[in-house]
Amino acid sequence: MDKETYLKPLFKGNPITVLVLGICSSLAVTVQLKGALVMALSVTLVTAFSSLFISLLRNTIPNRVRIIVQLVVVAMFVILIDQALKAFSYDTSKMLSVYIGLIITNCIIMGRIEAFALGNKPWPSFVDGAFNGLGYGMILIIVAFFRELLGSGTLLGFQIIPASWYIENGGWYANNGLMILPPMALILLGCVVWVHRSIDKELQEQ
């Protein structure tokens, strides 16, 4: 394995900004940085371990029913994560609501299994899965960082913008309420894509 396996999923082949996978369950969890971190971690674990498992089973799965087998394996890991979150961090689990369950249909996982794990040995599949999860998490964290900072003036729940700046306290600053609303996640993501493609001109569409 060369450096390419690690770096490609993070930049040149980033699942969100280049391959357009896994947008479904990602955007609604970016209002706060905490949700984004938990989601990034969960997706990384699920992608890595389901890639590993499918890769171990790749020679025994009949081609016609492979989608169902993949879904069942992925669902198993998602249930594990969901139960763990409910047991150890109930508030986060409530905040993420259905989006943890939606990891099952996160296209990154299916995409990596179909494109990589079905034709490769277990260890490279594991690494590929893990780094694709990280590439996804990276974008999530960037978007969540701006949304929480500009929308609530906090990061991970800690006040970053001094309280005395706010208009209520005689200052000049007000939080941008638009950042908390769902559509802003998409617009920010659009800007991330814009920046990414301005730097890496090869990725521009014709």
Partner: peptide, 14 residues
């Protein structure tokens, strides 16, 4: 150019 395709699609959806 960098906005063409995906980037613009996101912003329009927003």
């Amino acid at each position: 150019k960098p906005l063409k395709g995906l980037g613009l699609a996101f912003i329009i959806t927003g």
